[in-house]
């Protein structure tokens, strides 16, 4: 098992390095921007991974939080309010502010359980979308807010797509490491217990409700971070991005990659963002494709690509004979039961 873990770590590391080296060599302009976007979306998807993969709670609210983050930056950095704050400060404050908002919203929404909670998050996305579209003083209405400054640290300004690529990779990597680490903390385990067996969780001292609220707040922080980055990279925010349709995309990204797998979520985000750009002419059928994809995923690969990947790795190892698992003396039917 040790070998397997190290192998997959090596695989992930190598593919990341390959990605960082190859992408700026072959892509530029619009296509590079799309790739940058996919990395920003991956941050939101990781928020969904925390909620859905670790905590078992299906939340669409990531998009609404992205909106909060984006409009936070739009208002405080573009001078619309009569004053501006440094972009770097905004990049820190937006997630913080949104984390608090998400925490407070979570206190209310997570009184609901299961599907009802999911419905409530859909409603949240819709309500926020209406506000973003119709309330001009803060959100600029359907025209959106333009002339948002790009991120600058000291005298250095991230202006080209190339610079944003490296910045996005860096922030995403940091987020991924944090999320991966959280999985191994007592908080991560308490979320897992909420997901798998909330009765056991309660008797093991886990405050089921507060664990969910904290996870929701974390997804708010990640959503706002992505939103702030989005606003600064594109220098523009408009409300049509925050329509409900787009919220489903993040769920699909997580499911394609594997909800409970950090690396899988990132790969899923990149794929789902880039594929529609490649198949531009088929755009009208996109929703149909997504719908079918979800059904196929649920039936054939509930753990997403990460699940398929690890099964594939197991098979290869069986063929090569590396994987001589240490079996317990009396557990004889481990093959039949394991997923």
């Amino acid at each position: 098992m040790k070998i397997k873990k190290n192998l997959s770590k090596l695989f992930i590391l190598l593919s990341c390095i390959l990605f960082i080296v190859i992408v700026p060599m072959f892509f530029e302009g619009y296509s590079l921007m799309v790739i940058n976007l996919s990395l920003i979306y991956a941050i939101i998807t990781l928020g969904i991974s925390v909620m859905l993969g670790m905590g078992g709670q299906l939340s669409f609210a990531g998009l609404a939080f992205m909106g909060f983050g984006a409009y936070f930056v739009a208002n405080f950095c573009s001078g619309r309010l009569g004053f501006t704050i440094p972009t770097l400060l905004a990049l820190v404050l937006a997630p913080l502010f949104c984390g608090i908002v998400a925490f407070l919203l979570g206190l209310i929404l997570l009184k609901l359980k299961g599907t009802y909670f999911t419905f409530a998050t859909i409603a949240l996305v819709q309500v926020c979308f209406s506000f973003f579209t119709n309330y001009r003083p803060l959100f600029g209405g359907p025209d959106g807010i333009s002339e948002i400054p790009s991120l600058s640290v000291g005298s250095f300004t991230f202006s080209s797509y190339n610079q944003w690529f490296y910045l996005s990779v860096g922030i995403l990597a940091a987020v991924a490491i944090v999320v991966e680490r959280i999985r191994r903390t007592s908080f991560g385990r308490s979320l897992a217990s909420v997901r798998d067996n909330d009765m056991a969780a309660l008797t093991l001292g886990v405050n089921v409700y507060m664990s969910k609220v904290k996870a929701f707040a974390l997804s708010g922080v990640l959503g706002a971070l992505a939103g702030a980055m989005y606003a600064m990279q594109g220098n523009f925010v408009a409300s049509d991005l925050f329509a409900y349709n787009n919220a489903t995309q993040f769920i699909i990204m997580a499911m394609v990659g594997g909800v409970n797998n950090t690396f899988g979520c990132i790969v899923g985000s990149v794929l789902i963002t880039i594929l529609p750009e490649i198949f531009r002419s088929l755009e009208r059928f996109l929703q149909l494709f997504y719908g079918l994809a979800v059904i196929v995923l649920m039936v054939f690969m509930p753990m997403g690509m990460a699940g398929v990947g690890s099964q594939f790795a197991k098979k290869i190892k069986k063929i090569l004979g590396i994987n001589k698992l240490k079996r317990s003396a009396n557990s004889t039917h481990s093959e039949g039961v394991s997923k």
Binding site: M1, S328, S331, T332, H333, V337, S338, K339
Partner: peptide
């Protein structure tokens, strides 16, 4: 490191 489901 085994899955919990591998136990009887």
């Amino acid at each position: 490191e085994n899955d919990i489901t591998s136990l009887t």
